[in-house]
Design a protein around this nucleic acid. Structure first.
Length: 207
DNA sequence: ATCCCGAGGG
DNA sequence: CCCTCTGGAT
């Protein structure tokens, strides 16, 4: 377990990938939650393409909850897993209207009760919407933090707890997008490009 | 061809 | 625990 590499790596990530990420377009918090749900297994570009029209068509959670499933599907048709997402969005918005008075809850335990909202979506929403510090562990964060020697846990929940101990809290809300960029371009699941990695000096995997 | 910026369901 | 859902990137 190396923890002395943490400071140097975090600084490098800040330098190369920046400290802020532009969030998804939205007028209302529930639309941000919807955008994050849409982003699963899809690119930001795909999501941003449908988002303006989506937000215009469904201005409130109640409007989406009442819309025919076919209309919801049509509005997100170009995005991966669109049938699942349309079904989950309708159910999720129905829950928001019926059980939360039309407002997205800000407690993670409540968010996790919403259809289509898992831990990754919930923590990212809390960070983006309310700047609540949290470590969002998606597939990239999971893979890279293990390669760096920051975590050893066998599932995302354990890794999340390990990272909360290893990382200063002010980095929690930016480590996700930084490692996503890094994970897509360099530290890929297979055939990682260790020769061109900016973290090569400190990474346990390369040394 | 193969793998995903997940989550629900059997 | 493993399967499925989807288009797009590589």
């Amino acid at each position: 377990m190396t923890e002395d590499n943490v400071g140097a790596i975090l600084k490098k990530l800040d330098d190369v990938y920046g400290v802020t990420k532009e969030g998804f377009y939205h007028d209302q918090p529930w639309q941000l939650l919807a955008a994050i749900m849409l982003s699963a297994q899809s690119t930001d570009k795909q999501v941003e393409e449908v988002l303006p029209d989506f937000c215009r068509r469904f201005q409130t959670a109640a409007q989406l909850a009442d819309a025919p499933l076919e209309e919801i599907e049509a509005s997100i048709r170009s995005i991966g897993l669109y049938k699942n997402k349309a079904k989950n969005l309708k159910k999720c918005c129905t829950q928001i209207v019926n059980e939360y008075g039309g407002e997205v809850p800000s407690e993670i335990e409540e968010l996790l009760k919403l259809a289509g909202v898992g831990r990754k979506t919930a923590t990212l929403f809390l960070a983006d919407a309310y700047e609540i510090p949290g470590v969002t562990v998606d597939t990239h964060v999971f893979r890279i933090s293990r390669r760096l020697g920051w975590a050893e846990g066998k599932n995302p929940v354990i890794v999340e707890q390990e990272l909360q101990k290893v990382l200063p809290e002010e980095h929690w809300n930016r480590i996700n997008f930084q490692l996503i960029y890094h994970g897509r371009e360099v530290c890929t699941a297979r055939k990682a490009k260790c020769e061109e990695c900016i973290l090569g000096d400190w990474c346990e995997r390369r040394i």
